[in-house]
Design a protein around this nucleic acid. Sequence first.
RNA 1: GGUCCCGUAGCUCAGCUGGAUAGAGCAUCUGCCUUCUAAGCAGACGGUCGCGCGUUCGAAUCGCGCCGGGAUCACCA
Length: 589
Amino acid sequence: MNTGLEAAIAATLKELFGIEETHVDLQETRKEFEGDLTLVVFPYLKASRMSPEATAEAIGKALLPQAEDVSAYNVVKGFLNLSLSDAPIRAAMDRMLLDEQWGIVKLNPDVPAAMVEYSSPNTNKPLHLGHIRNNLLGYSVAKLIEATGKPVLQVQIINDRGIHICKSMYAWKMFGGGETPASTGMKGDHLVGKYYVRFDQQLKSEVANLVAQGLSEEDAKKSAFCMKEVQQMLQDWESGDTEVLELWNTMNSWVYEGFNATYDRLGVQFDKNYYESQTYVLGKKDIEIGLAQGVFYRREDGSVWIDLTEDGLDEKLVLRKDGTSVYMTQDIGTAIQRFSDYQMDSLTYVVGNEQDYHFKVLFLILQKLGYTWAKTLSHLSYGMVDLPSGRMKSREGTVVDADDLLDEMESTAQKLSEELGKVEGLSEAERASLYRTLGHGALKYFILKVDPRKRMVFNPEESIDFNGNTGPFLQYTHARICSILRKAGVMGSWSWEDFTLATKEKEVIKCLAKFPSIVQKAAADQNPSDVASFLYELAKTYNGFYQVHSVLNAETPQIAAFRVALSGQVAGALQRGMALLGMAAPERM
RNA sequence: GGUCCCGUAGCUCAGCUGGAUAGAGCAUCUGCCUUCUAAGCAGACGGUCGCGCGUUCGAAUCGCGCCGGGAUCACCA
C-alpha cells in the first residue's frame, strides 16, 4: 500500500541531508498516535545536525508536497507520523476487487514442486495430540507453499516395521482370540494399539516374575519369554516368513483404515505414502558410494561411520557392523530416492524438535555426499505439546488420543450451538457438519496460532475456548458477513466519488491490504501462526466497523453497496486465510 | 558434562531484522441487543518482559555471565 513512499522519503533524505539510504523502514503508527505510518528519525540525526523534532519536522515538511499519498504529518519526539490520503487506500481496495483469489498466488504447474513430509506415524498405536500438531502444521505449510504458486507434494513415511510392530502382533496372536475391527466395532488403529499395550502388560508381569527369581530388571527384560518370541518374530519377518507377513499385512491394513479415518476428519491427505518396510534397505548403496568418496570410513569391526567433529558434531554411525541400516541410513537413501523420483526443488520435514540433531547430521551428510539439493532441505522443527503436568506419557495414560479429542471438540461445538440457539432450521446433516466445522476449527486455530517452534501447553481439563481469540470467532465473523451478503442480494453500483471513507472503513481496508504479504511471509518462514494472528486482527477490525456502521442500512445506497463489497472482501480473505490453516468457513452458525 | 531450544499479566499466547506509555484472549468486574447473528462490541483490573552486566541516543528484542525448565548426545526410531 505504501509502495513508493519509502523511495520518496529516501529522496527527501538525500536532498535535505545528503543521506544515501537504500531501505527506509516505515512502521505502522501506534494506535494512540495520529497517523498511519511512522518514520523513526533517530538514525538521521548525525547527518541532519538537528534535534529529533526539528529533523522530523524538516522531513515532513519537505515530503508533504511531494508525496501524493501523504495527506498530513505530525511529529512526536523523534517520530514522524504520516497520515495517508485516501488515494492509496482506495487503490488497495480496487486491487482486491479485481482478483477473486486475491492474496493467493495462482498455482503454476510448470515450476518444480516442494515436497513436505509430515505425520509419519508408527503402526502400533493410534494418532495422538502430538500427531495432530504435526499434521496441522504439515498441511498448513503445504497450503502456504501452494499459495506462493508452487506445486506441493505431501508425503508421509509410515513406520510399519520393527520390533514395536511385532509386539502388537505377538500380543494379538496370544490374547486376541481372533478379534478384528469388524468383530469388535473398534477402529483398527485403536485395536492394534490395545494389543501393543497388552504386550507391555505381559512383559511387565514376566519381568516381575523373573525379578522375583533374582534377575536384574535389565536381564529380566532381555530374557523374558514374550520378548524372545517377539525378537524371533522380527527375524521371521525379515526372512519373509509367510505366516508372519500375513499377520503383519492384516494388522497393518487395520491400522491404515483407522489412520485414514482420522486423516479424513482432520482434512489432510497425502500424494504419496512411503513405507519403511520398503525404504529401510535404501541408503546402503549410497553408503558404499560415500565410502568410495571418502566421506565415510569403515571401522575394524565393519561398521561404517562419518566423522563430523570438524563441524562441531560427533562421529555418527551410518551402517551397523552386521551391514544392517540404521534410521540415518534409510533417511539418506529415501532423500536421494525422492529427488530422483520427482521434479522438486525442496524438501521439508515436519518433525518434532527432539530430532534437531538427527536432521542437522542428515543434511550435513547429504551435503558432503555432494548433492546440490541438500541445501534446500529444511526441518520444520516444532515444539512438544505438553500437558499442564508436563509431557504426555503413555505409561501414565495421559496421552490425548486424536479421535477422542476430535469427538470432544465436536460435542462441545454441539453443546454451545444448541445453547445459543444457533441450529434452528438446520437439518440433521447440516448440524453435524456445522459441529464438525466449528469443533475442528477451534482445535486447529488453537494449535496453529502458536509459533510452531515453541512448545505449547494443552489442558485437557479445560475445553478449548470458542470466545475471544479463537477459531470460532473467525468463523463467526465470516458467517455474519455471509448473512449480510445473502440479505443484500444484488447491489447497485458505487464509485469513490459517491462518498468519503469513514475511519473504520479505512482501518478495514488497511488491514485487508496486508493479507498477500502476510501469506508470502508465512510461507517463507513456514509459520502458519502469522496467518492466524493476521486473521484475528482482521476479524477484530471488521467487527469494530460492524458495530458502529450498518452495512445494509447505510446513509446512501452507494455507501451500502460499497460496504457490501468491503464486507465481501473481508469474508473472502477470512475464508482463504482459514483455508490455509485447514479451517472451513461456515456461511451460517 | 558438551550442544541446542525456551523463560513476557493468575492462565494460554503475541511482540524479538533494536524505537514512542510492552499487546491480545481467558479469568474477575462495568456498560451495550425495538436496526445487518451479543460465539459480538466498548471499558476497568492485572507486568521488576527469569536475574545481572555490557553495546546503544534508545534493549522484551543484540552480546556475555548466571538461575530455572526442556530436548539431545544409542550399532533405537
